[in-house]
Design a protein around this nucleic acid. Structure first.
Lengths: 215, 215
DNA sequence: TCCACGTGGTTACTTGCGGTAACAGCAGTC
DNA sequence: GACTGCTGTTACCGCAAGTAACCACGTGGA
Protein backbone atom coordinates (compact mmCIF):
# COMPACT_ATOMS: atom_id res chain seq x y z
CA UNK A 1 0.00 0.00 0.00
CA UNK A 2 2.35 2.69 -1.24
CA UNK A 3 1.24 5.97 0.28
CA UNK A 4 2.29 7.74 -2.88
CA UNK A 5 5.84 8.13 -1.75
CA UNK A 6 7.24 9.05 -5.11
CA UNK A 7 4.53 11.62 -5.55
CA UNK A 8 5.40 13.14 -2.19
CA UNK A 9 9.00 13.09 -3.29
CA UNK A 10 8.10 14.84 -6.48
CA UNK A 11 6.23 17.61 -4.73
CA UNK A 12 8.63 17.79 -1.80
CA UNK A 13 10.64 20.51 -3.45
CA UNK A 14 7.49 22.46 -4.22
CA UNK A 15 6.32 22.16 -0.67
CA UNK A 16 9.70 23.37 0.52
CA UNK A 17 9.42 26.29 -1.81
CA UNK A 18 6.01 27.01 -0.40
CA UNK A 19 7.38 27.01 3.13
CA UNK A 20 10.12 29.39 2.14
CA UNK A 21 7.56 31.70 0.60
CA UNK A 22 5.57 31.64 3.81
CA UNK A 23 8.65 32.69 5.74
CA UNK A 24 9.49 35.39 3.22
CA UNK A 25 5.95 36.61 3.49
CA UNK A 26 6.21 36.99 7.23
CA UNK A 27 9.43 38.94 7.00
CA UNK A 28 8.32 41.20 4.17
CA UNK A 29 5.10 41.98 5.97
CA UNK A 30 7.08 42.84 9.06
CA UNK A 31 10.08 44.68 7.58
CA UNK A 32 8.73 45.94 4.29
CA UNK A 33 10.08 45.30 0.81
CA UNK A 34 13.65 46.13 1.82
CA UNK A 35 13.84 42.96 3.87
CA UNK A 36 17.23 41.37 3.36
CA UNK A 37 17.78 37.89 2.01
CA UNK A 38 19.66 37.11 5.20
CA UNK A 39 16.66 38.03 7.30
CA UNK A 40 14.34 35.93 5.19
CA UNK A 41 16.68 32.97 5.32
CA UNK A 42 16.96 33.32 9.07
CA UNK A 43 13.19 33.43 9.44
CA UNK A 44 12.98 30.23 7.43
CA UNK A 45 15.62 28.68 9.67
CA UNK A 46 18.18 28.26 6.90
CA UNK A 47 20.84 30.29 5.10
CA UNK A 48 21.03 32.33 1.95
CA UNK A 49 22.28 29.95 -0.72
CA UNK A 50 19.17 27.83 -0.40
CA UNK A 51 16.98 30.79 -1.18
CA UNK A 52 19.07 31.42 -4.24
CA UNK A 53 18.78 27.81 -5.31
CA UNK A 54 15.00 28.08 -5.18
CA UNK A 55 14.37 31.54 -6.54
CA UNK A 56 17.44 32.51 -8.51
CA UNK A 57 17.75 35.99 -7.14
CA UNK A 58 15.96 38.47 -4.98
CA UNK A 59 13.62 39.71 -7.64
CA UNK A 60 12.71 36.11 -8.39
CA UNK A 61 11.64 35.62 -4.83
CA UNK A 62 9.72 38.86 -4.87
CA UNK A 63 7.98 37.94 -8.08
CA UNK A 64 6.87 34.64 -6.61
CA UNK A 65 5.62 36.43 -3.53
CA UNK A 66 3.84 39.10 -5.52
CA UNK A 67 2.15 36.55 -7.72
CA UNK A 68 0.50 34.87 -4.76
CA UNK A 69 -0.98 38.05 -3.38
CA UNK A 70 -1.89 39.38 -6.77
CA UNK A 71 -3.78 36.23 -7.69
CA UNK A 72 -5.68 36.37 -4.42
CA UNK A 73 -6.66 40.00 -4.86
CA UNK A 74 -7.72 39.50 -8.44
CA UNK A 75 -9.94 36.61 -7.44
CA UNK A 76 -11.62 38.82 -4.87
CA UNK A 77 -12.21 41.53 -7.42
CA UNK A 78 -13.62 39.06 -9.92
CA UNK A 79 -16.13 37.91 -7.35
CA UNK A 80 -17.22 41.46 -6.65
CA UNK A 81 -17.54 42.11 -10.35
CA UNK A 82 -20.01 39.22 -10.52
CA UNK A 83 -22.08 40.32 -7.55
CA UNK A 84 -25.86 40.76 -7.94
CA UNK A 85 -27.51 44.08 -8.68
CA UNK A 86 -27.34 46.54 -11.52
CA UNK A 87 -24.21 47.84 -13.15
CA UNK A 88 -23.62 50.62 -10.70
CA UNK A 89 -24.06 48.24 -7.79
CA UNK A 90 -21.41 45.99 -9.23
CA UNK A 91 -18.98 48.81 -9.78
CA UNK A 92 -19.47 50.04 -6.26
CA UNK A 93 -19.07 46.53 -4.89
CA UNK A 94 -15.79 46.19 -6.74
CA UNK A 95 -14.50 49.49 -5.44
CA UNK A 96 -15.48 48.39 -1.97
CA UNK A 97 -13.71 45.09 -2.37
CA UNK A 98 -10.51 46.77 -3.49
CA UNK A 99 -10.51 49.42 -0.81
CA UNK A 100 -11.35 46.90 1.84
CA UNK A 101 -8.43 44.76 0.78
CA UNK A 102 -5.88 47.56 0.92
CA UNK A 103 -7.35 48.82 4.14
CA UNK A 104 -7.16 45.57 6.03
CA UNK A 105 -3.67 44.62 4.83
CA UNK A 106 -1.77 47.77 4.03
CA UNK A 107 1.64 46.12 4.22
CA UNK A 108 0.68 43.65 1.53
CA UNK A 109 -0.62 46.52 -0.51
CA UNK A 110 2.56 48.56 -0.14
CA UNK A 111 4.61 45.57 -1.06
CA UNK A 112 2.62 44.91 -4.20
CA UNK A 113 2.43 48.49 -5.36
CA UNK A 114 5.88 49.79 -4.47
CA UNK A 115 8.17 46.79 -4.80
CA UNK A 116 11.17 49.07 -5.39
CA UNK A 117 11.98 46.91 -8.32
CA UNK A 118 14.90 47.05 -10.66
CA UNK A 119 15.00 44.04 -12.98
CA UNK A 120 16.74 44.53 -16.32
CA UNK A 121 19.66 42.64 -14.82
CA UNK A 122 21.94 42.94 -17.84
CA UNK A 123 20.47 39.81 -19.33
CA UNK A 124 17.35 41.33 -20.82
CA UNK A 125 18.79 44.80 -20.90
CA UNK A 126 17.96 46.42 -24.17
CA UNK A 127 15.66 43.57 -24.98
CA UNK A 128 12.19 44.33 -23.75
CA UNK A 129 12.52 47.67 -22.06
CA UNK A 130 9.87 48.48 -19.52
CA UNK A 131 8.42 44.98 -19.46
CA UNK A 132 9.62 44.49 -15.91
CA UNK A 133 7.42 42.08 -13.99
CA UNK A 134 3.97 43.07 -15.24
CA UNK A 135 2.98 44.35 -11.86
CA UNK A 136 -0.35 44.38 -10.16
CA UNK A 137 -1.72 47.52 -11.72
CA UNK A 138 -1.26 46.21 -15.22
CA UNK A 139 -2.83 42.88 -14.48
CA UNK A 140 -5.83 44.50 -12.85
CA UNK A 141 -6.22 46.84 -15.80
CA UNK A 142 -6.04 44.00 -18.29
CA UNK A 143 -8.53 41.93 -16.37
CA UNK A 144 -11.03 44.72 -16.00
CA UNK A 145 -10.63 45.55 -19.66
CA UNK A 146 -11.46 41.95 -20.53
CA UNK A 147 -14.58 42.00 -18.39
CA UNK A 148 -15.75 45.28 -19.88
CA UNK A 149 -15.08 44.07 -23.40
CA UNK A 150 -17.05 40.90 -22.92
CA UNK A 151 -20.01 42.50 -21.23
CA UNK A 152 -20.42 45.91 -22.81
CA UNK A 153 -21.10 47.06 -26.32
CA UNK A 154 -19.08 50.22 -26.88
CA UNK A 155 -19.71 50.71 -30.58
CA UNK A 156 -16.81 50.68 -33.00
CA UNK A 157 -13.36 50.16 -31.51
CA UNK A 158 -15.21 48.52 -28.66
CA UNK A 159 -12.35 46.24 -27.73
CA UNK A 160 -9.80 49.04 -27.63
CA UNK A 161 -12.07 51.34 -25.70
CA UNK A 162 -12.69 48.60 -23.16
CA UNK A 163 -8.99 48.19 -22.56
CA UNK A 164 -8.43 51.89 -22.17
CA UNK A 165 -11.26 52.06 -19.69
CA UNK A 166 -10.00 49.04 -17.82
CA UNK A 167 -6.64 50.62 -17.20
CA UNK A 168 -8.15 54.02 -16.58
CA UNK A 169 -10.64 52.84 -14.00
CA UNK A 170 -8.03 50.75 -12.24
CA UNK A 171 -5.73 53.74 -12.11
CA UNK A 172 -8.48 55.90 -10.70
CA UNK A 173 -9.16 53.32 -8.02
CA UNK A 174 -5.47 53.01 -7.28
CA UNK A 175 -4.56 56.66 -6.93
CA UNK A 176 -7.68 57.58 -5.00
CA UNK A 177 -7.21 54.55 -2.78
CA UNK A 178 -3.58 55.33 -2.12
CA UNK A 179 -4.39 58.88 -1.15
CA UNK A 180 -7.35 57.84 0.94
CA UNK A 181 -5.33 55.22 2.76
CA UNK A 182 -2.79 57.84 3.74
CA UNK A 183 -5.07 60.70 4.69
CA UNK A 184 -8.32 59.01 5.59
CA UNK A 185 -10.32 62.10 4.68
CA UNK A 186 -13.64 60.29 4.66
CA UNK A 187 -15.33 56.93 5.09
CA UNK A 188 -14.92 54.17 2.59
CA UNK A 189 -18.51 54.53 1.61
CA UNK A 190 -18.20 58.19 0.81
CA UNK A 191 -15.13 57.54 -1.27
CA UNK A 192 -16.86 54.80 -3.21
CA UNK A 193 -19.84 57.00 -3.93
CA UNK A 194 -17.70 59.92 -5.07
CA UNK A 195 -15.77 57.72 -7.45
CA UNK A 196 -18.86 56.06 -8.80
CA UNK A 197 -20.34 59.51 -9.32
CA UNK A 198 -17.27 60.49 -11.28
CA UNK A 199 -17.57 57.39 -13.45
CA UNK A 200 -21.23 58.10 -14.02
CA UNK A 201 -20.51 61.43 -15.62
CA UNK A 202 -21.06 63.94 -12.86
CA UNK A 203 -17.95 65.78 -13.98
CA UNK A 204 -19.57 66.69 -17.27
CA UNK A 205 -22.82 67.70 -15.64
CA UNK A 206 -21.57 69.81 -12.75
CA UNK A 207 -22.25 73.55 -12.72
CA UNK A 208 -19.48 76.09 -12.98
CA UNK A 209 -18.88 77.94 -9.80
CA UNK A 210 -20.11 81.54 -9.87
CA UNK A 211 -17.33 83.90 -10.91
CA UNK A 212 -14.98 81.18 -12.06
CA UNK A 213 -13.82 80.80 -15.62
CA UNK A 214 -15.12 77.28 -15.65
CA UNK A 215 -13.19 74.02 -15.73
CA UNK B 1 32.86 99.36 -7.52
CA UNK B 2 31.93 96.10 -5.89
CA UNK B 3 30.41 93.92 -8.58
CA UNK B 4 28.13 92.33 -6.01
CA UNK B 5 30.81 89.94 -4.92
CA UNK B 6 29.12 88.84 -1.76
CA UNK B 7 25.96 88.19 -3.67
CA UNK B 8 27.84 86.10 -6.16
CA UNK B 9 29.41 84.33 -3.24
CA UNK B 10 26.03 83.73 -1.73
CA UNK B 11 24.66 82.19 -4.87
CA UNK B 12 27.87 80.42 -5.84
CA UNK B 13 26.97 77.41 -3.76
CA UNK B 14 23.52 77.37 -5.30
CA UNK B 15 24.98 77.52 -8.77
CA UNK B 16 27.32 74.67 -7.90
CA UNK B 17 24.38 72.73 -6.64
CA UNK B 18 22.61 73.43 -9.88
CA UNK B 19 25.56 72.12 -11.88
CA UNK B 20 25.62 68.97 -9.81
CA UNK B 21 21.94 68.48 -10.44
CA UNK B 22 22.52 68.86 -14.15
CA UNK B 23 25.14 66.14 -14.02
CA UNK B 24 22.93 63.91 -11.92
CA UNK B 25 20.17 64.49 -14.41
CA UNK B 26 22.32 63.34 -17.28
CA UNK B 27 23.33 60.16 -15.48
CA UNK B 28 19.87 59.31 -14.24
CA UNK B 29 18.42 59.83 -17.69
CA UNK B 30 21.09 57.56 -19.09
CA UNK B 31 21.29 54.83 -16.43
CA UNK B 32 17.88 55.02 -14.84
CA UNK B 33 17.02 55.57 -11.17
CA UNK B 34 19.54 52.98 -9.98
CA UNK B 35 22.41 55.23 -11.02
CA UNK B 36 25.09 55.09 -8.35
CA UNK B 37 26.39 58.05 -6.43
CA UNK B 38 29.84 57.22 -7.71
CA UNK B 39 28.65 57.42 -11.29
CA UNK B 40 26.96 60.75 -10.69
CA UNK B 41 30.02 62.15 -8.97
CA UNK B 42 32.20 60.97 -11.83
CA UNK B 43 29.90 62.61 -14.37
CA UNK B 44 30.18 65.85 -12.43
CA UNK B 45 33.96 65.45 -12.41
CA UNK B 46 34.22 65.16 -8.65
CA UNK B 47 33.94 62.52 -5.92
CA UNK B 48 31.22 61.30 -3.64
CA UNK B 49 31.61 63.31 -0.42
CA UNK B 50 30.80 66.53 -2.23
CA UNK B 51 27.49 65.16 -3.35
CA UNK B 52 26.75 64.22 0.22
CA UNK B 53 27.67 67.68 1.44
CA UNK B 54 25.18 69.19 -0.95
CA UNK B 55 22.30 66.76 -0.74
CA UNK B 56 22.71 64.88 2.50
CA UNK B 57 22.02 61.46 1.09
CA UNK B 58 20.92 59.75 -2.06
CA UNK B 59 17.23 60.29 -1.50
CA UNK B 60 17.96 63.97 -0.91
CA UNK B 61 19.56 64.21 -4.31
CA UNK B 62 16.69 62.34 -5.88
CA UNK B 63 14.15 64.56 -4.21
CA UNK B 64 15.90 67.66 -5.53
CA UNK B 65 15.99 66.13 -8.97
CA UNK B 66 12.38 65.05 -8.84
CA UNK B 67 11.22 68.44 -7.67
CA UNK B 68 12.65 70.14 -10.72
CA UNK B 69 10.93 67.87 -13.17
CA UNK B 70 7.74 67.75 -11.19
CA UNK B 71 7.48 71.52 -11.04
CA UNK B 72 8.01 71.74 -14.77
CA UNK B 73 5.38 69.15 -15.55
CA UNK B 74 2.86 70.70 -13.20
CA UNK B 75 3.35 74.09 -14.82
CA UNK B 76 2.64 72.55 -18.19
CA UNK B 77 -0.52 70.93 -16.92
CA UNK B 78 -1.69 74.15 -15.30
CA UNK B 79 -1.34 75.90 -18.62
CA UNK B 80 -3.36 73.25 -20.39
CA UNK B 81 -6.01 73.46 -17.70
CA UNK B 82 -6.36 77.14 -18.50
CA UNK B 83 -6.57 76.71 -22.24
CA UNK B 84 -9.52 78.21 -24.16
CA UNK B 85 -12.64 76.25 -25.05
CA UNK B 86 -15.33 74.51 -23.07
CA UNK B 87 -14.80 72.16 -20.18
CA UNK B 88 -14.33 69.09 -22.26
CA UNK B 89 -11.83 70.86 -24.46
CA UNK B 90 -9.82 71.79 -21.42
CA UNK B 91 -9.84 68.28 -20.06
CA UNK B 92 -8.76 66.85 -23.37
CA UNK B 93 -6.03 69.47 -23.68
CA UNK B 94 -4.74 68.50 -20.25
CA UNK B 95 -4.71 64.82 -21.10
CA UNK B 96 -2.85 65.65 -24.27
CA UNK B 97 -0.31 67.72 -22.39
CA UNK B 98 0.37 64.94 -19.94
CA UNK B 99 0.63 62.20 -22.51
CA UNK B 100 2.78 64.34 -24.72
CA UNK B 101 5.16 64.95 -21.83
CA UNK B 102 5.58 61.31 -20.94
CA UNK B 103 5.85 60.38 -24.59
CA UNK B 104 8.62 62.77 -25.44
CA UNK B 105 10.73 62.11 -22.34
CA UNK B 106 9.98 58.61 -21.11
CA UNK B 107 13.14 58.35 -19.01
CA UNK B 108 12.16 61.40 -17.02
CA UNK B 109 8.74 59.91 -16.60
CA UNK B 110 10.07 56.57 -15.39
CA UNK B 111 12.34 58.31 -12.97
CA UNK B 112 9.54 60.39 -11.51
CA UNK B 113 7.02 57.60 -11.26
CA UNK B 114 9.20 54.71 -10.16
CA UNK B 115 11.93 56.26 -8.03
CA UNK B 116 12.38 52.99 -6.14
CA UNK B 117 12.24 54.97 -2.97
CA UNK B 118 12.69 53.85 0.57
CA UNK B 119 13.03 56.77 2.99
CA UNK B 120 12.03 56.10 6.58
CA UNK B 121 15.72 55.97 7.42
CA UNK B 122 15.30 55.20 11.10
CA UNK B 123 15.06 58.89 11.92
CA UNK B 124 11.44 59.41 10.98
CA UNK B 125 10.55 55.79 11.39
CA UNK B 126 7.30 55.46 13.24
CA UNK B 127 6.80 59.18 12.95
CA UNK B 128 4.85 60.01 9.86
CA UNK B 129 4.32 56.71 8.16
CA UNK B 130 3.67 56.84 4.46
CA UNK B 131 4.57 60.52 4.11
CA UNK B 132 7.65 59.63 2.13
CA UNK B 133 8.47 62.32 -0.40
CA UNK B 134 5.00 63.28 -1.62
CA UNK B 135 5.68 62.02 -5.08
CA UNK B 136 4.45 63.25 -8.37
CA UNK B 137 1.14 61.44 -8.40
CA UNK B 138 0.07 62.95 -5.12
CA UNK B 139 1.05 66.44 -6.07
CA UNK B 140 -0.80 66.20 -9.36
CA UNK B 141 -3.86 64.86 -7.58
CA UNK B 142 -3.81 67.63 -5.02
CA UNK B 143 -3.36 70.30 -7.66
CA UNK B 144 -6.16 69.03 -9.84
CA UNK B 145 -8.39 68.71 -6.80
CA UNK B 146 -7.72 72.35 -5.98
CA UNK B 147 -8.58 73.44 -9.49
CA UNK B 148 -11.79 71.43 -9.50
CA UNK B 149 -12.77 72.74 -6.10
CA UNK B 150 -12.30 76.35 -7.08
CA UNK B 151 -14.06 76.11 -10.40
CA UNK B 152 -16.88 73.62 -9.93
CA UNK B 153 -19.89 73.53 -7.67
CA UNK B 154 -20.38 69.94 -6.61
CA UNK B 155 -23.14 70.42 -4.07
CA UNK B 156 -22.58 69.44 -0.46
CA UNK B 157 -19.19 68.01 0.39
CA UNK B 158 -17.99 69.84 -2.67
CA UNK B 159 -14.45 70.27 -1.41
CA UNK B 160 -14.06 66.61 -0.49
CA UNK B 161 -15.58 65.41 -3.73
CA UNK B 162 -13.21 67.64 -5.66
CA UNK B 163 -10.21 66.14 -3.95
CA UNK B 164 -11.40 62.60 -4.57
CA UNK B 165 -11.94 63.41 -8.20
CA UNK B 166 -8.58 65.12 -8.48
CA UNK B 167 -6.76 62.04 -7.31
CA UNK B 168 -9.03 59.72 -9.23
CA UNK B 169 -8.65 61.50 -12.54
CA UNK B 170 -4.91 61.77 -12.13
CA UNK B 171 -4.73 58.07 -11.40
CA UNK B 172 -6.77 57.30 -14.47
CA UNK B 173 -4.47 59.40 -16.58
CA UNK B 174 -1.44 57.79 -15.01
CA UNK B 175 -2.39 54.14 -15.38
CA UNK B 176 -3.81 54.52 -18.86
CA UNK B 177 -0.77 56.53 -19.88
CA UNK B 178 1.65 54.01 -18.45
CA UNK B 179 -0.04 51.18 -20.27
CA UNK B 180 -0.31 53.15 -23.49
CA UNK B 181 3.34 54.15 -23.36
CA UNK B 182 4.34 50.50 -23.11
CA UNK B 183 1.98 48.99 -25.66
CA UNK B 184 1.15 51.85 -27.98
CA UNK B 185 -2.18 50.28 -28.88
CA UNK B 186 -3.54 53.44 -30.48
CA UNK B 187 -2.80 57.05 -31.25
CA UNK B 188 -2.64 59.66 -28.55
CA UNK B 189 -5.76 61.23 -29.90
CA UNK B 190 -7.78 58.04 -29.65
CA UNK B 191 -6.61 57.50 -26.12
CA UNK B 192 -7.56 61.00 -25.10
CA UNK B 193 -11.01 60.65 -26.59
CA UNK B 194 -11.63 57.31 -24.92
CA UNK B 195 -10.65 58.66 -21.54
CA UNK B 196 -12.70 61.80 -21.96
CA UNK B 197 -15.64 59.62 -22.95
CA UNK B 198 -15.17 57.62 -19.78
CA UNK B 199 -15.12 60.80 -17.70
CA UNK B 200 -18.22 62.03 -19.47
CA UNK B 201 -20.29 59.11 -18.32
CA UNK B 202 -20.27 56.74 -21.27
CA UNK B 203 -19.71 53.85 -18.87
CA UNK B 204 -23.11 54.37 -17.31
CA UNK B 205 -24.83 54.78 -20.64
CA UNK B 206 -23.34 51.91 -22.61
CA UNK B 207 -25.56 49.00 -23.63
CA UNK B 208 -25.09 45.52 -22.25
CA UNK B 209 -23.74 43.12 -24.78
CA UNK B 210 -26.33 40.64 -26.02
CA UNK B 211 -26.21 37.42 -24.01
CA UNK B 212 -23.99 38.83 -21.28
CA UNK B 213 -25.09 39.20 -17.71
CA UNK B 214 -24.28 42.87 -17.83
CA UNK B 215 -21.51 44.77 -16.13
C1' DT C 1 29.59 -4.09 1.23
C1' DC C 2 31.11 -0.24 -0.84
C1' DC C 3 30.73 3.40 -4.03
C1' DA C 4 28.44 6.96 -6.63
C1' DC C 5 25.20 10.57 -6.59
C1' DG C 6 21.66 13.89 -6.02
C1' DT C 7 19.85 16.95 -2.40
C1' DG C 8 19.43 20.00 1.60
C1' DG C 9 22.58 22.34 4.12
C1' DT C 10 26.75 25.15 5.63
C1' DT C 11 30.88 28.51 5.96
C1' DA C 12 33.41 31.87 3.98
C1' DC C 13 34.26 34.66 0.42
C1' DT C 14 33.90 38.58 -3.42
C1' DT C 15 31.93 42.65 -5.17
C1' DG C 16 29.75 46.84 -5.07
C1' DC C 17 27.23 50.56 -3.00
C1' DG C 18 25.79 54.05 0.51
C1' DG C 19 27.85 56.75 3.69
C1' DT C 20 31.69 58.87 6.71
C1' DA C 21 36.22 60.50 8.77
C1' DA C 22 40.12 62.92 8.29
C1' DC C 23 42.75 65.62 5.94
C1' DA C 24 44.53 69.34 2.22
C1' DG C 25 44.42 73.62 -0.56
C1' DC C 26 42.69 78.18 -1.14
C1' DA C 27 39.70 82.26 -1.08
C1' DG C 28 38.42 86.31 1.87
C1' DT C 29 37.93 88.67 6.51
C1' DC C 30 38.87 90.37 11.22
C1' DG D 1 48.69 86.18 10.59
C1' DA D 2 45.09 83.31 12.46
C1' DC D 3 40.13 82.07 11.52
C1' DT D 4 36.37 80.66 8.65
C1' DG D 5 34.21 78.41 4.98
C1' DC D 6 34.34 76.67 0.75
C1' DT D 7 36.48 73.47 -2.70
C1' DG D 8 38.15 68.98 -3.09
C1' DT D 9 40.74 64.49 -1.94
C1' DT D 10 41.95 59.42 -0.20
C1' DA D 11 40.82 55.84 2.49
C1' DC D 12 37.97 53.60 5.12
C1' DC D 13 33.38 51.13 7.48
C1' DG D 14 29.19 48.41 7.24
C1' DC D 15 26.12 45.87 4.90
C1' DA D 16 23.56 43.41 1.41
C1' DA D 17 23.50 40.62 -2.96
C1' DG D 18 25.28 36.83 -4.87
C1' DT D 19 28.74 32.76 -5.35
C1' DA D 20 32.21 28.92 -4.62
C1' DA D 21 33.49 25.15 -2.28
C1' DC D 22 32.61 22.03 0.78
C1' DC D 23 29.81 18.72 4.07
C1' DA D 24 26.38 15.05 5.42
C1' DC D 25 23.26 11.72 4.39
C1' DG D 26 19.83 8.56 2.47
C1' DT D 27 19.11 5.70 -1.78
C1' DG D 28 20.11 2.75 -5.39
C1' DG D 29 22.91 -0.14 -8.06
C1' DA D 30 27.43 -3.28 -8.91
Amino acid sequence: METGQREQQRTATERRRHELLEAADRVVLRDGPEASMNAIAAEAGITKPILYRHFGDKSGLYRALAKRHTDALLATLRTALDSPGDRRDRVEATLHAYLSAIETRPQVYRFLMHPAESAATDAEKGFDVGRHSVPLLRRMGEDLGDVIAERLDLGQDSRLTARVWGHGIVGMMYAAGDWWLGERPCSRDELVRSLAGLLWGRLGEADDRAGSRGL
